[in-house]
């Protein structure tokens, strides 16, 4: 099918705030939204054609786009699904994205897909497998990708490495970048009773190409301990905003930041306000000449 060339909009993702693209919002977005970029879940655009493809073209004509895969099972212990990798390449070819990312997680085993991002133990053996998979994806796409830190609810007794060391080693070994999900840091650290600030301090921030923010649900486990659940169904929590601000200050540079909201979708102005809040924090570190919203 003929595609409108998006050559009048840059491909590169600016160091601004973006939001997850939802088809419900496209009308209002095209009516004049001022958003740095839009992120799509790759799998939602893996049909053969129709409305999702058309809306993506419309958005891409006006905005930079990042592609975020949720189904490649990079952390799986078997071979990657070649058919799914080919579908990801087709989406990337169509969307011409500034960034492509996937998760440090698994979701497929023995040809069964589990619709969740499941955790893996951090060992030399899993590092070798994940590195091989990341290299395979990067070879197929002909570009580096970003790998995202997971939200977790349990740890593996067999783990021998810190998650931050695992990700740093993965980046060093494959040349991949990292996607730092600050909400996932808050969720995972709270759930394992670790210090989120210490996690950020240990994170290889120089490899971070994008940050994610999202809402979570606060629950209690059987012993009455706080259990945070990564739900993406509400506004970003204040402690996550504070951790984000500290992260950006520690990094010393503005980093493209995405607000994710994937269920119980808000009206567009609510989501746009979340992006504006991230934009304000980023603007403090952006060189004056790049300021788009001075005053």
């Amino acid at each position: 099918m003929a595609r409108t060339s998006p050559d009048h909009v840059t491909t590169a993702i600016p160091a601004r705030a973006g939001v997850s693209l939802k088809l419900d919002h496209v009308g209002e977005i095209l009516n004049g939204a001022d958003i740095g970029f839009f992120e799509i879940h790759a799998e939602n655009y893996m049909g053969d054609g129709g409305l999702p493809h058309r809306m993506l073209e419309r958005i891409r004509e006006r905005f930079p786009v990042s592609v975020h895969g949720v189904g490649l099972s990079i952390g799986g212990d078997g071979p990657l699904d070649g058919a799914h990798l080919a579908r990801l390449k087709a989406v990337v070819d169509r969307a011409d994205p500034g960034l492509v990312s996937e998760h440090l997680a698994w979701s497929t085993h023995d040809h069964t897909y589990v619709p969740d991002l499941l955790p893996l133990p951090y060992t030399e053996a899993t590092l070798a497998t994940v590195a091989e998979h990341v290299a395979q994806v990067q070879d197929m796409l002909g570009r580096p990708i970003l790998i995202e830190n997971p939200s977790t609810y349990l740890a593996f007794a067999e783990t021998t490495m810190e998650e931050t060391d695992f990700l740093a080693a993965l980046a060093a070994r494959t040349g991949c970048g990292l996607l730092l999900d600050v909400n996932n840091v808050m969720v995972a650290c709270t759930n394992r009773e670790a210090d989120p600030d210490a996690y950020i301090a240990a994170f290889p921030l120089d490899r971070v190409g994008e940050i994610h923010l999202a809402g979570h649900h606060e629950d209690r486990d059987a012993a009455g301990r706080t259990l945070l659940i990564d739900t993406h169904d509400r506004a970003v929590a204040d402690p996550v905003w504070a951790l984000y601000e500290a992260t950006i200050e520690r990094a010393g540079r503005p980093i493209p930041t995405l607000v994710e909201w994937d269920s119980d979708l808000p009206d567009w102005p609510v989501l746009a306000r979340e992006a504006a809040r991230a934009e304000e924090i980023l603007a403090r570190l952006r060189p004056a000449k790049e300021l788009r919203h001075a005053g």
Binding site: D116, L118, L154, A155, F156, N191, E193, D221, L227
Partner: peptide, 22 residues
């Protein structure tokens, strides 16, 4: 049994989060 909570003990209740999500 190798999936543990913050106290290092197996935690079947926390595992429910994965089941519920799926």
């Amino acid at each position: 049994a190798g999936l543990v909570g913050p106290d290092g003990a197996p935690d079947a209740l926390r595992f429910q989060v994965y089941r519920n999500t799926v």
